[in-house]
Amino acid sequence: MLLEFCKDALLAAVAAIGFGAISRIPQRAYLWCGIIAAIGHSIRFLLMQPGINLHIIAATSVAAMIIGSLAVFISPYAKTPAEAYLFPSLLPMIPGIYAYKSFGGAIMCMLESSQESFEYYFYQFAQNGFITVTIILAMVICATIPIFIFKNRAFTATR
């Protein structure tokens, strides 16, 4: 499990740095971005392990809140707006497989003519789609709340 945990954190950091580069964050923020994403993703990983066994939506919300808070408190040290860290750090938590299955279900609904098949694929589309949308909403709202609460700190980061 330790190996899996480390692999997960490392991959999340690499993904965050890459997506930070796409959104052109300052190069001095690359390292922080990787660290925030690794911490956030690792926390979600731990919360979903047997023993704690938190649901993916709750685990993602907690991790997103921690990512948002870290972004607010680290931003003055890196002299970069807190928003710059959010997207790259949150992206590794996007429920890609749920989104993929939901999208696939929607396409298959259109292609299938029998009622039985349609119902099966519509269930796939609705269930996976609902989870995807809820996770994304929870993630974005929970990550943005710390910036809203600590607005003075967040908006003086580049001072």
Binding site: A15, I17, G18, F19, I22, P92
Partner: peptide, 10 residues
């Protein structure tokens, strides 16, 4: 390069 590595990490 970084974007490609990021998506592969994903």
């Amino acid at each position: 390069l970084l974007a490609s590595c990021a998506n592969a990490a994903f």
